[in-house]
Simulated scan of single mutants.
Amino acid sequence: MRKAASTSTTARQLGRLAGVAGAVVWLAMVTAAWAQDTVHLASGGRTGGRVIDYTGRQLVLELAGGLRRTIPGDQVVAVETTKTPQEADGDRAAARGDFGAALALYRVARQAEPRVWVRRQLTAKIVWCHRALGQLERACREFLVLIASDPQTPELDCIPLAWLPTPPPVALEQSAEEWVAGNQGPAVALLGASHLLSTAARPRALNRLKQLALGSDRAVALLAVAQTWRTQVATVAPEQLEAWQRAIETMPHRLRAGPYYVLAQGWRNQGQWEQAALALMRIAILYRRHYRLAGQSLWEAGQMLERLDRPEQASRLYRELVGDFSNTPASPQAADRLKELARTEG
């Protein structure tokens, strides 16, 4: 009888332990479900929960128990979340410069992704890929998808603005005319005006940029001002270039790549090769995601260094361009120049 009672007691204890263990497992699963995203804040802190939505205006975070917290968009630095295998593979492909493979993977990931805010981030990555591949019209179309979903997108730095003084393809020029004249929002008007600055519609584009520079969307206004500089690089005075430099330093870091390129053109036209090279190198070092602009910047920085009689330093930049930005239009130029410099040294 004692043995039977002992066995019964043991069974009850095991049952209670199993219940406790089950509760612990359940609690762990709930905690994981409600803390799957990590939000990094501008204050340096971070908070966890499940991101319900994230736009340029605000981030909505659901906490354990169903409570919701709203965080202003300008206080959010980054969000860590679980990635699908396709997105993770896409990131790796983009990191090694295989933008075609990355593009295909991001498209698959976006189609399968149920979270709207993550789909927006994937759309931004798709824009970056099209830009790197030189597919400007497709990049612009995807950007329109992004901005329609979130007019104040925190991914504004992916906007495929024109910074080089080259005319757009005919189809893109026609679309840009519509964007400038339409009412799809300031970011779309900025996109259109930037591509029209190198066309016969330049006066109209410049007028639209000046209007945007006075608008309430600060990020768009800052980029619009920098776009107007493109019309002044041939005549700008050194003191004005210094003012441009100060203006760039007040911009959000993610928006500085294109403005630095315009600043470099101004310094170059003044014969200030060192200053031009420094501005270009900032792009190549800090904004490598701007793949084609970074490649062009390396090429031009090398040219500036050659003017300063620094062929060895120029050669290092050309080698970096050929190695890391091999799929840019500037890469063949750099390869040819390396051969010429090697013959000169020989």
Rank of each mutant, 00 (worst) to 15 (best):
P329I: 00
L286Y: 10
P259Y: 04
Y54F: 11
T166N: 09
T81K: 00
R92S: 08
S315V: 03
A213C: 09
V118Y: 00
A33Q: 14
Q232P: 07
W128D: 14
E242V: 04
L136G: 11
L255H: 13
H253N: 10
Q270S: 11
W179E: 08
A132I: 02
S297G: 10
D98H: 03
L293Q: 05
C158W: 10
Q36P: 02
A221S: 15
C158P: 04
G73N: 02
V170C: 05
E80C: 00
V145K: 14
M29C: 12
E142P: 01
Q135H: 11
A330G: 12
I52L: 14
T84N: 01
P332Y: 02
A277R: 12
Q240W: 00
F99A: 02
A314C: 07
A171K: 10
A28M: 06
S326H: 09
A42P: 01
T228V: 04
R282E: 15
A257D: 14
A109P: 05
A42E: 12
P72H: 00
L61D: 05
L156E: 06
D74Q: 08
A221P: 08
N183H: 10
E249Y: 08
A21H: 10
E177Y: 06
W128V: 10
G65R: 03
A28C: 07
V51L: 08
V24P: 06
A284K: 04
D309L: 06
P238I: 03
A78Q: 07
R107Y: 02
E249F: 06
E340M: 08
A294Y: 00
E312L: 11
P186E: 10
R120D: 13
A162T: 01
A247K: 06
R115N: 09
E80K: 05
L305A: 03
L223W: 00
C158E: 14
R343I: 06
Y261H: 15
P203G: 12
L122R: 04
Q174F: 02
R131M: 08
V118G: 03
R316W: 05
W163G: 08
L103D: 05
R288K: 11
D157H: 14
E312R: 12
G185R: 05
A237V: 06
Q313K: 11
I71L: 04
A221Q: 08
A181G: 15
D37S: 13
Q245D: 14
L61W: 03
A213I: 02
K3C: 03
G44R: 07
L209H: 06
W267P: 14
A35Y: 11
A23S: 13
P160A: 09
L338H: 10
E173I: 00
V233T: 13
E300C: 04
G56M: 06
Y260H: 15
W273E: 13
A93C: 01
L222F: 07
R46S: 14
P114F: 06
Q296R: 09
Q232M: 07
D98M: 00
T344H: 10
